[in-house]
Design a protein around this nucleic acid. Sequence first.
RNA 1: GCCGAGGUGGCGGAAUGGCAGACGCGACGGACUUAAAAUCCGUUGGGGGCUAACCUCGUGAGGGUUCGAGUCCCUCCCUCGGCACCA
Length: 809
Amino acid sequence: MTYDPLQIEPKWQAKWEADGLYKVADDDPRPKWYGLTMFPYTSGDLHVGHWYAMGPSDVHARFKRMQGYNVLHPVGFDAFGLPAENAAIKRSIHPKKWTLDNVDNMRAQLKTMGCCYDWDREIITCLPDYYRWTQWFFLKLYEAGLAYKAKASVNWCPECQTVLANEQVLDNGTCERCNTTVIKKDLEQWFFRITKYAEELLTFDNIDWPERVKLMQKNWIGKSVGTELTFGLEDGRDFTVFTTRPDTVFGVTFVVFAPEHPLVQELTTNGQKVEVEAYIEATKKQTEIERLSSEQEKSGVFTGAYAINKLSGQKVPIWIADYVLMSYGSGAVMAVPAHDTRDYAMAKKYGFKIKTVIAPDGYDGGALEQAYTEPGTMVNSGQFDGQPSTQGKESISDFVESKGWGKRAISYRLRDWLISRQRYWGAPIPMLYCPKCGTVPVPETDLPVLLPEDAEFRPTGESPLTYNDDFVNETCPKCGGVAKRETDTMDTFMCSSWYMYRYASPQYDKGPFDPALLKKWLPVDMYTGGIEHANMHLLYSRFFAKAIRDIGLVDFDEPFTRLFNQGIILHEHQKMSKSRGNVVNPDDYVNTIGADTVRTYLMFIGPWELGGNWDDSGINGMLRWLKRIWNLALEAPAKKASADEKTTKEVRHWTHKTIKIVTNDIERMRFNVMLAALMEFTNYLGKAKNAAFDTDAWREAIEDLILMLAPTTPHFAEELWQRIGKPYSVHNQPFPTYDEKLAAEDEITLIVQINGKVRAKLTAPASIPEDEALEMALSDDNVKVHTNGKTIVKKVYVPGKLVNIVVKG
RNA sequence: GCCGAGGUGGCGGAAUGGCAGACGCGACGGACUUAAAAUCCGUUGGGGGCUAACCUCGUGAGGGUUCGAGUCCCUCCCUCGGCACCA
């Protein structure tokens, strides 16, 4: 009988399911271990990219199981959202049907992977017993003052007919879903106050996350330390600017307001009105990206008004320009052309004075060729002259604070999280508007606010729910009068900000989670998924954990203790996408060579974090390898040689050496190297078979090999385990452990170098002392050739490794 | 522009500062076969050398540190990712 994956894989999947092999018990006394993979979006079919995300993380979870942990490794479906709705519209079917059909399809496909999922814990975010709690969390955040409604200039996608979070706008100014150019709209929207946690989100203490993700989040949050300065107006009023360079305040030669700044309308003089209005209109027409492009030439318009620099007493003109943003700092900046490249460009174009106040080393007092933005010595700055500018930042801030002209301040680039969506397929925001009582939250006991299924969900720019009278008209829970429901739905990132908690008690109906089980399972010990969520899901989830911690629902600060980002799997060296038509469907491979081979091949392509190109030319190598193992384990050699002690010792050495490498590599998520080590081991066993077969050492080697393969090829290992006569199930066996003494080499290859070049490779005992090693090296023939007639200057000995002899002449 | 990751045979890739190219694919040669597939054995970085020992060049380019550099440092080139008029 040869290895036949198509026969054995369905057989074991059925048996595992019937036996509940992967059911996770909450009362298991063993230490818990929570390994989570980012749940898939219900986009249709599973492709090779899903396997790449889910296969290796299943291997790691299975490894932890075998190491004796009570492992929670659940799966579910991220099921609300625009793609489902758009696809449903295109096909003229209901998003619910489309989504749940996809769930059925994807679940069936997932089961063919042979992962150790406990399907009783599956969650689907678009079902009422889930989104009820999404709404419940909204109410909790509202009560805590972390959810608020405000009019804001928001990103609007004309194609999707909805607002987008900043994170959903690509860097070319287009919608991440449909690549339509995003425009700005002023709308009343619900926000979560993520900015309240900006500072805490910058610290990553006690979590083991990749540096690049931490850095991406730090860049996204964009902390700047500076000073808020007040400037005077001619009518005696004040306004504020934010600057990181208070040391340059004596160099201010004009002030710039964002076109939307509320003071602009008041301050603009009659003579400038026409020009200012025209500029504001032109700005509105620009996309955010055009406006923020540093490529674009600077432009601006004079308001006719003047500001007074309190420190220098100078009067400077107030302009408006589109490069100043209302949403950052105070929407107004002091312009210092001598020391800021943007202000310099404005000054050159419109003829503002350029006043040097920070002197570079060796400055001769002449005009600067370009803005000097580095530190230097303060000049033309009154009482502060002569100070180093770094010190000047502090002394000017002190001075300003003492005068009451401003204070030290911190600005963040991070904005509050906009969660309203004017679309149908999402969790309704559980709020009511009463003409008498104002904004009223839906009482917890009335949850869920069900998403009506009979809605006309074509996008119109308003939420489709607006046209559903049964949904909209409601009684005010406070006064009993007529109230109207909020018709916007929530951003789906809200659903995924708390799903990891739901797995702890997925059927619990008295709250989003059973507090005792949450305490048992959370936080997630190992979270894996793509890095594309660095500034979205991963940041929102961290915010969410901190927010509900402060509400008193959880007692940890971070939801994911360790994070690992796998890379992207490409096809034809491009990202897989339906529109490009290069999506690889794993089913075709599963139905011909089996899931175990696909799992193995995906892990062998390269380091998991780097991703790689799917090219099936190498996949046969994996199948060949598994077949070789099959024969190795099950077939007696044709010619049996007699076993000697040297052979059995060598077999044990290889076994333990391999266990050591494999254990280490799975912990490090270096699956490609782990497989290489297992291949070397099988190559060795193939050579040793004739002599070692039927010895205890051989049987141990085969058993340990099967156990080491169990996480990677669960069906294959189960079948072999049974065929060598071991009791079901291989997946309840402990992972092999190694004996350091047996794993250690007792003979080494001693490398002999002359001037750093290898001249001999000698076999020596691992414990060879320095003098013996040198003697052995120097008596080698080839070494003699290279040392004869030369003076030995130096001898280097690296124990157990090499000798380097340095010669001269 | 700033920050980060990376650049190693025909290909995917391996290598705590210590044998560069593990492991796999592909290719070539051989065994088995009427034949093919499958399987098994061998060879496989370039150049030289009796296809021997061995020598030599070689990890994007150029310098440097070191007994010794794919690995550390400096300068530069290329690819990918993030941020980008953020005051």
